[in-house]
Computed example of a mutant assay.
Amino acid sequence: MNPTSARARRAVRARAVSAAAAVVVTALGAVGLVSCDTGNDDTGGPAVSERPTAPDTAGFSGELPSSVASSGAAAVESARASASSAAASASAREAERKASIGAEVERTRRQAEGELEDVKAPGNALSDVAMTGKPRADSGGVLTVVLNITNNTDEEASYAVQVDFLNPSGEVVETQFVGVEDLEPGERQQPLVISRQPPEPVLTPRLTKAQRY
C-alpha cells in the first residue's frame, strides 16, 4: 500500500468529521437562540408571555375559616361583657351615691331633732326660715314643702327646723325635722320636707320651730 495515499484518505476523513461537528454546533446554537428568545425583535414588538393559570376555586366555600369566625365571636362577646360591666359599675356608683346622700340626710335630721328636743317653740331663728309649698304635679302627688333657710347673722351658723303636718281638724299627724349646717353669713339653703302621709285627707304644713346654733 502506498503510504502517501493512506495519509491522504485519513486527512479527507478528518476534514469530513470536522465539517459535520461544525454543522451540529451551528444547529444547536440556533436552537438555543430560539429557546432563549424573549419575544422582542429589533422592531420593538411586545413580548409574548405564557397564559396565566386560573385560580383553583374548588376550595372556596364562601365562609370564614372556623378560627377566624371564633375570634370574631370572642371579640363581640368580650365587647358585650365590657359594656355590661360598665353599665353595672355605673349603676352601682349611682346607688352608692344615693345611699350616701340618704345617710347624710338622715344624719342631719337626727342632729336637728336632738337640737330641738329641749327648745320651746318657736326657737331663736324663726325669722331666718321661710316655707313655700311645692305643686303636687311637680312632686308626684306627694305633699312637699320647700324651706328657705338664710343665715342673716354675721357669723357661721347651723339650723334645726321642725315642720308639723296638721289634718283638717288641726291635729298634728306628722312631724318632720330638717337640719342644715355651717351656713356662711348671707348663705341660703333650700331643703325639702316631704310628708309620708297619704294624699287624703289634705294636710296643712306648719313651721313650728327653728333654732340657730
Rank of each mutant, 00 (worst) to 15 (best):
T43L: 14
S78Q: 14
R51I: 04
A14K: 09
N40D: 10
R15E: 09
P46T: 10
N151C: 04
P122T: 12
G179W: 01
D138K: 10
R15W: 11
E200Q: 11
E117H: 12
E115A: 14
V31K: 03
A74G: 04
A86K: 04
A69F: 02
G140H: 05
A99G: 10
V76M: 05
N40C: 07
E184G: 05
T4P: 00
Y159V: 00
R212L: 03
R136P: 01
A103H: 00
A88F: 06
L183T: 02
S127P: 01
V31C: 07
A160I: 04
V161A: 02
A30D: 08
V119Q: 12
L143D: 06
A27I: 11
P201F: 09
Q162S: 05
V180S: 00
T53M: 06
V23Q: 06
E106L: 09
A54N: 03
N151D: 09
V119L: 14
F60S: 11
S67R: 11
A47F: 03
K120V: 13
P205K: 05
P198R: 06
V172T: 15
T175A: 14
Q189H: 05
V76L: 11
V146A: 10
S89H: 05
G44I: 07
E63T: 15
G186W: 11
A86Y: 05
D42G: 09
R15A: 13
S195Q: 01
P46N: 08
G45F: 07
V202G: 02
A30W: 07
D41A: 13
T132H: 07
A81F: 02
D154Q: 13
R206C: 02
D154F: 09
L28M: 14
D56P: 06
L147Y: 00
E184V: 03
T175R: 15
S89F: 04
S66Y: 03
E181T: 11
V161N: 01
Y159A: 00
E104M: 08
E104H: 05
A130H: 00
S71M: 11
R188S: 15
L203E: 01
V76Y: 01
P46K: 05
S158H: 11
C36G: 12
T57E: 15
L166G: 04
A79T: 04
R107I: 02
R7W: 10
G62E: 13
A58D: 12
